[in-house]
């Protein structure tokens, strides 16, 4: 269990109440909501996926003439799913790189401090 908590990144001081205090953070909630939305839109798209669309390779996109027929909105789940993938993916990647950057920078500062301390020690 301790291993699991460490893996999940729970704070050690709230081990007893980890599912109240340590486990539920804003970040994790956002992540869970994002994943649920992603899977949800995918599921809705699959569930609605009953009709056979015409197989055709378009080489020209034309604007629909809205005076003659209603616009075709049946693809909304697919479109929302696609946009969710791109934007959640981009932000997740940017966030992860920045986080890794922060960690490595902190490490760098630690090392610099250690070297400074070391130099001072050997000088005196």
């Amino acid at each position: 269990m301790v291993q699991l908590e460490r893996w999940l990144g729970a704070k050690p001081h709230c081990r007893n109440l980890w599912f109240f205090a340590g486990f539920v953070t804003i970040r994790r909630t956002c992540a869970v909501v994002a994943v649920a939305l992603l899977l949800g839109t995918g599921g809705v798209a699959m569930a609605q996926d009953t009709e056979e669309a015409p197989a055709r390779y378009g080489t020209e996109f034309e604007a629909a003439d809205l005076t003659k027929h209603k616009e075709d909105l049946s693809g909304i789940p697919f479109m929302v799913g696609a946009y969710m993938v791109i934007w959640s993916g981009l932000f997740a990647y940017l966030y992860s790189v920045r986080k890794r950057n922060g960690q490595v920078s902190a490490q760098l500062e630690e090392l610099r401090a250690a070297i400074r301390l070391h130099d001072k020690g050997s000088d005196s």
């Binding site: 015409p54 996109f61 034309e62």
Partner: peptide, 20 residues
Amino acid sequence: APVEATMGIVQKIFYFHVPC
């Protein structure tokens, strides 16, 4: 941008799919 005539609204994926 208008909705595409034959594919409908799903064509809007194009505006980010192709740039990616």
